[in-house]
């Protein structure tokens, strides 16, 4: 407990507690709003299929970014590059593997019809 007490002594750190608390709340509210948008896009049944898919995809990606930002505190500036580089590299591999798999297998499936 000893070394943790030092943090409380500086006023700046005490103020950032409120900031950090609101960070989690903002992340939560943003996630709820984006989930509601995605659900409404599907349940309302007014959008054509492609528009519903696009809304789900955009809302999902935005929600992932919102959670990386407000929950995991990953920022573009003010911190070292390594964790962000790792995320970008992982996304690159994911796009290649997942996108490639779906593309190739979808093409194969279409030719088998």
């Amino acid at each position: 407990m000893s070394h943790m007490d030092k943090i409380d002594e500086s006023g700046g750190q005490m103020e950032s507690r409120a900031d950090e608390q609101s960070s989690y709340l903002r992340g939560g509210i943003a996630s709820v709003v984006l989930t509601v948008i995605a659900v409404l896009a599907v349940v309302s049944d007014v959008l054509p299929d492609w528009a519903a898919w696009t809304t789900i995809a955009v809302a999902g990606i935005l929600q992932a970014v919102a959670q990386l930002h407000w929950f995991l505190h990953i920022r573009l500036h003010g911190q070292a590059w390594e964790d962000l580089q790792l995320i970008f590299f992982t996304i690159l591999i994911l796009v290649l593997m997942v996108g490639g798999t779906i593309w190739v297998m979808g093409d194969l499936s279409a030719r088998m019809m």
Binding site: D8, Q21, G27, V32
Partner: peptide, 23 residues
Amino acid sequence: ETTLLLASSVTIGFALLETKHRA
């Protein structure tokens, strides 16, 4: 399930804040 998991993500953040700022 979405609601429960999202709420739990916020509450674990609060647990970390109690650790960091108040110990």
